[in-house]
């Protein structure tokens, strides 16, 4: 079987399984979010009511969109403060067998924002920075709550289409409780148990030490008595040469974090190497399950949308647009990676795939996964807001690296993150019908709601906030000393590293071109601000659109209504997404991966 066939079969297997689950899971999510009785709600009902009682919440009392938005913002601020406090105080708190030092203030700020925004950008190395308590009570808890926040926003936007002539769009506390309790928690428990079966670790042990056969000489960072790295005048870590035969094997409660990391499209790894670490992703099967878990809820939400608006064809149409875009870009990444580095041939290196070798570009990839599963993982993690990696994106070919970058820049809607994917593509759908309305001279409408000036102003805020954050952030990064100091590969690739960093932060993805040294005061602050604005400004706009639509009357379908479930609408939607993505980012992409591609094939 050739490499291309292997890639196609792997993609079909995973996407086929996910799409097969979309209908039952999508129906279940609709039942949960609309308060219908399910097996889980009958089991967890008393606990759900206890949560409301403890929080002093009346679940029957619905909110206006602005009340909902402020509740959401305060809830997430509280989450950020908890993570920040846990990191700063972890040395004095339990479950820290390695006695890891308090995290620095700038890194703690960055990580706190990263995990409440579902970005999970990691400037730190988990195994040498975070105590078990911080990982579990801080980071893992936020993996649930940030995914539940995204799902809540999606449901509000969908309610905007269902309801009419009302200013009430739901209760944030109810939405976030139900989605955590009845969807994310049960799925994560099941996946964690399966991953443990594959060899993912789950314990509270101190780190193990193994004796290696060969001696290893390495540069060891110097630390002060508190365990903090000592830096020179330029901010670089001071190191000393050391030799060892001891290898430290990190331990910890990994599986419980790993499952929600994928299912919640969070992506923050327990270890620095993320899903390329054998304790996070040990086997071919665990790799397939992790990719499927990333896709599971975002694709199912298209069916949830169709079911809630009473026409499942609407959901299938959105899914079709997502699949077309994803398939083309994922295949591009694979072809580029399997094509490999053209300079290798000049040095007599055989890069052809044979029965004995994978061929292509294997730099930065795990041999147990190979090119097909690594390219597919890279595309999956950036087509959603996940950001987990099973290989190093910095080592991909220029076009291979362009694909994850562009998938994020499209807005992460193929299928996008938990909740974020469906609400992002719905806003592109609103924009699409608006453009179509302008072309044919009719008042645009979508699912029985007129799309008017207010919705378009809000959609503009939604769509333009992220490119503004990404491009302004990148511009600041390339002209300031702090920004340039983190680049390990100057030139076009270095530009791509900064662009990737801000793209990942602004779109709340969290994956990184590993070449960027981001644990500096500049990047911790700049990316922290980018993550917050890239998350909550679009959320506010989406909630406002939901509120605005809910307040309108429903208009009947007539012969002049454009069908929004057929090939014409799907093409229009794909065209709108591509047009916005290309217009926003082509100049920046031309300076990074595109230049690098031409330089590589010119022999530089």
């Amino acid at each position: 079987m050739d490499a291309g066939t292997r890639f196609a079969l792997l993609a079909l297997l995973i996407l086929g399984a996910v799409i097969a689950c979309a209908k039952p899971l999508g129906k279940y999510i609709a039942d949960v979010m609309e308060g219908r009785a399910t097996f889980a709600s009958r089991l967890g009902g008393p606990f759900e009511r206890l949560i409301y009682r403890l929080c002093g919440t009346d679940p029957a009392q619905e909110m206006t969109w602005s009340h909902y938005a402020i509740a959401l913002l305060l809830f997430n601020l509280l989450g950020a403060l908890v993570i920040y406090g846990l990191q700063r105080l972890q040395l004095w708190l339990p479950l820290n067998p390695q006695h890891l030092a308090a995290v620095s203030a700038d890194s703690a700020f960055n990580t706190a924002v990263a995990f409440v925004t579902n970005t999970d950008w990691q400037g730190y190395s988990g195994e040498s920075t975070m105590s078990y308590l911080t990982q579990m009570a801080g980071l893992t808890v936020q993996n649930y709550l940030s995914a539940a926040t995204g799902l809540s926003v999606a449901v509000v936007l969908i309610r905007g289409f269902i309801r009419h002539s009302t200013d009430r769009i739901g209760n944030f506390w109810v939405d976030v409780t139900r989605s955590s309790l009845y969807l994310l928690l049960p799925l994560s428990i099941v996946l964690a148990l399966v991953l443990v079966g594959q060899g993912v670790i789950q314990n509270f042990e101190s780190y193990e030490t193994a004796t290696t056969i060969e001696k290893l000489t390495f540069d060891n960072p110097k630390t002060d008595p508190d365990g903090n790295a000592i830096k020179d005048d330029k901010g670089n870590a001071v190191t000393e040469s050391a030799t060892t035969q001891a290898q430290t094997l990190p331990m910890g409660p990994v599986a419980s974090q790993e499952s929600i990391k994928e299912l919640g499209t969070n992506g923050g790894g327990f270890f620095n190497a993320n899903s390329s670490h054998p304790y996070e992703n040990p086997t071919t099967l665990s790799n397939v399950l992790e990719i499927a878990a990333i896709f599971l809820i975002p694709f199912a939400l298209t069916y949830t949308f169709g079911r809630m608006v009473g026409d499942t064809r609407q959901g299938w149409a959105l899914m079709a647009a997502m699949l077309v875009l994803f398939a083309v870009l994922a295949a591009t990444a694979f072809v580029s990676e399997q094509g490999g580095n053209p300079l290798f041939a000049q040095h007599g290196v055989d890069s052809q795939a044979t029965a004995m070798q994978s061929g292509g570009n294997m730099e930065g990839k795990e041999t147990r996964f190979g090119i097909a599963a690594s390219a597919l993982f890279a595309a999956a993690t950036t087509a959603t807001s996940c950001g987990a990696v099973n290989g190093m994106h910095d080592s991909m070919t220029p076009i291979g690296g362009f694909v994850p970058l562009f998938l994020m820049q499209l807005g992460e809607l193929t299928p996008g993150g938990v909740g974020t994917g469906i609400y992002t593509i719905l806003i592109f759908a609103i924009l699409g019908v608006f453009i179509a309305g302008l072309m044919i001279g009719r008042t645009p409408e979508y699912l029985g709601k007129k799309i008017q000036a207010r919705e378009m102003k809000l959609a503009s805020i939604f769509i333009l906030t992220t490119p503004m954050v990404v491009l302004v952030g990148t511009a600041i990064g390339v002209v300031t000393l702090g920004g340039k100091a983190g680049v390990s590969n100057p030139g076009a690739h270095g530009f791509s590293e900064i662009l990737y960093g801000f793209t990942s932060a602004g779109n709340n993805n969290g994956s990184a071109f590993a070449g960027l040294s981001a644990n500096t005061e500049f990047y911790n602050l700049a990316l922290g601000i980018a993550m917050w604005l890239g998350r909550f400004w679009p959320i506010v706009a989406a909630l406002a659109i939901g509120g605005s639509l809910a307040s309108k009357k429903r208009i009947p379908v007539t012969e002049g209504t454009m069908p929004t479930h057929g090939p014409l609408f799907i093409s229009l939607l794909i065209g709108t997404i591509l047009l916005i993505g290309v217009l926003n980012y082509v100049p920046a992409l031309a300076l990074g991966p595109v230049v690098e591609h031409f330089m590589l094939f010119q022999g530089h």
């Binding site: 602005s66 700038d106 008017q452 400004w537 506010v540």
Partner: peptide, 30 residues
């Protein structure tokens, strides 16, 4: 340092609440 970063966090929150209040002033269509 904690004061600086917590202040930035609250400033981001206030800027976002400002956006909520700003959007409420955008006129309604009927």
């Amino acid at each position: 340092m904690d004061v600086i970063y917590l202040t930035i966090l609250f400033a981001l929150l206030l800027a976002t609440i400002g956006l909520v209040l700003g959007i409420e002033r955008i006129g309604e269509d009927r």
